[in-house]
Amino acid sequence: MTGLLLSLQGAVAQGIIWGIMALGVYITFRILDIADMTVDGSFATGGAVCAVCIVGGMNPILAVLLAMVAGCICGFITGLLITKFEIPAILAGILTQIGLYSINLRIMGRSNLPLMQSDTVFKSISELTGLSAAQASLVVGVLVVILVIVVLYWFFGTEIGSAIRATGNNERMASALSVNTKTTKIIAIMIANGLVAFSGALVTQSQGYADVKMGVGAIVIGLASIVIGEVLFGNKRGFKLRLTSIVVGSIVYRVIIAIVLRMGMQTDDLKLLSAILVGVSLALPVMMTKRKQVNLYKKLTGKEGK
């Protein structure tokens, strides 16, 4: 029983820091309306940069910030491919992601880099407060996620943030209102991947190593968190709750994984489970929206007489 509780506590802590990655995916997937495949690469880039910095003796907080900057650069490249060179968004993301695989190996100099006895944010906190490693990870995660949500809430309420939302919602309208949609897209993809790398850096510190493959399937996990959140909370609520629902979705996702693992599922089968989970969760709202759409059509058309 305590084993289950412990693994659930671990799952929640993991869900929270992976939730930051999901928030990044949300920016591209829901706000900008593109599926950005860069994520799988930039997540590992965040981890790699953070690991190298920490092993090199850098302050762990500074290492996280640097990882975030690296993520923004990854996003900038994808953004440039999409806007300046008009490469389809999916392909642009895949190109960056593939390229990043080599770059991440270069950054680390090998495929797996353990942090050994180096300081991490979590270690410092647990030393400072006397909390256990898992508890420290939970506390840090919650504080960081709240900070991220508050900053995102603020940013998407500003003029630039509104312009980004308009770009994703109706690009022609945004252009007609003097929004440089190339710039807004690039900014959004940069912020998204900055968050993804941020998350990758925290995951690295929490698990004690970076691995070149740590981002494989990250986009799917991000999407799963978003759709689970939407299924749980609906997607018509206010923006703050919307962001929170994604982190909750990420936690639920981790809890589901922890439970099926305890029930004896093979780790190798997890990716299939994730894919099915996302597939089903994405399909459900579409079916629901379609039904709603038909009803709305009937309603409006009846009124307008056209």
């Binding site: 500003t158 003029e159 312009a163 309208m173 209102l177």
Partner: peptide, 25 residues
């Protein structure tokens, strides 16, 4: 923009031709 509010749409239009920054939308 269908997913944005009436006021938000108008505020977007109110900034046509102006520089957009980090002030409130």
């Amino acid at each position: 923009a269908a997913d944005m509010g009436i006021a938000e749409n108008l505020a977007m239009a109110n900034r046509r031709g102006k520089k957009r920054g980090l002030r409130w939308g």
